[in-house]
């Protein structure tokens, strides 16, 4: 009986070892395949739960494919652990480059570092990581300057007085603070503009609606809401509609997403900051291609200017960009 048991255990071990060995060979084959064609590019996006990031990812993938690469999108679901798993799979999967929209400015550094150690270049898009030593380049929206302009417009629309709420994005994302600080660098100079509440809704539409509904209970007489992104602006607007205050309370967003651009056209949401996800994604794919072909000197950070979109200039813009660029 003991002998039979030992034999079974040995056979199981042999089977397991064989399977592992085959997987290693396959990964090596996949790695070798990289050298046969133009190769594979991974597009890692913080979350596909937000249409703006879907556009970012789809555009990066499309441009990479136009340049002759096989491109795959990975959704980190705003989770650095999932993001880390993606990087592990990308490293063993023989990818030639990574177009990366980080989940966290500090938390994502380690992932880019391990890709670099595996000799896979990373190109950050839209969100930055707080390191200049690991990614090849970082193509970033100039959120602070965009929100300085937003802040100036906000002050003008509010006539320098009134009560407002601020909905923040993900607290670990530099974009959240770049936008908030840019906005406050202007607005805080006007003592008659009072922020009655500031809370995170994590860049999420549903959360923004719930958070604002709750804030309105304690502060029913606000005049405006500044939201750190357009998904939250839509959620905030929904909450105001439900409360019967959509005509009275101004909503300001940031991103340039389709639903907010349409809303501005309809005279509902007041303004947004047009980031250019398509432009940034295309730049990242093109720079990855240049890198693979041999170019190695890239600026560490490339800010991409954000443009203020209002009801006055809305005809110049469409979702995610300018009319003239479509």
């Amino acid at each position: 009986m003991a002998k039979k048991l030992s034999f079974c255990i040995i056979m199981i071990l042999v089977l397991a070892l064989s399977t592992f060995s085959c997987k290693q060979k396959k990964q090596q084959q996949v790695g070798n395949e990289k050298s046969k064609g133009k190769g594979k590019i991974a597009v890692v996006i913080s979350t596909l739960n937000n249409p703006w990031f879907v556009v970012l990812g789809d555009t990066a993938k499309e441009r990479a494919e136009q340049l002759g690469y096989e491109a795959t999108i990975f959704d980190s679901q705003n989770d650095t652990a999932k993001e880390s798993d993606h990087f592990d799979n990308i490293i063993t999967g023989g990818y030639a480059a990574i177009l990366f929209n980080p989940t966290e400015a500090d938390g994502s550094i380690a992932n880019v570092k391990k890709a670099k150690e595996a000799k896979i270049p990373t190109f950050c898009i839209d969100r930055e990581i707080n390191s200049n030593d690991v990614a090849v380049t970082q193509i970033l929206s100039d959120n602070y300057s965009g929100c300085v302009e937003m802040g100036q417009y906000f002050v003008k629309k509010m006539n320098g007085k009134g009560k407002y709420v601020e909905l923040l994005g993900i607290l670990g994302d530099n974009n959240t603070w770049n936008r908030s600080k840019g906005f406050h660098s202007v607005v805080d100079n006007y003592p008659n503009l009072k922020m009655v509440a500031q809370q995170t809704a994590e860049f999420d539409r549903t959360k923004a609606m719930e958070v604002l509904e709750s804030i309105l209970q304690a502060n029913p007489d606000i005049d405006a809401v500044f939201c750190g992104n357009d998904a939250m602006a839509m959620g905030a607007y929904q909450a105001l509609v439900a409360a019967g205050k959509a005509e009275k309370v101004m909503v300001f967003g940031f991103d340039g997403a389709k639903d907010v651009i349409d809303s501005i056209s309809d005279g509902k949401i007041i303004a947004t900051g047009m980031q250019f996800p398509k432009k940034m994604a295309q730049m990242a794919a093109e720079q990855a291609d240049e890198y693979i072909k041999g170019k190695k000197d890239f600026p560490k950070k490339v800010p991409v200017a954000v443009e203020l979109v209002t009801q006055e200039n809305i005809t110049r813009y469409t979702a995610y960009g300018r009319q003239s660029e479509q």
């Binding site: 400015a105 200049n132 602070y144 603070w177 770049n178 560490k300 950070k301 800010p303």
Partner: peptide, 12 residues
Amino acid sequence: DVSEFSDTMKFN
């Protein structure tokens, strides 16, 4: 130069 800074908030 923005590339001097690991965190663009410092640049701002």
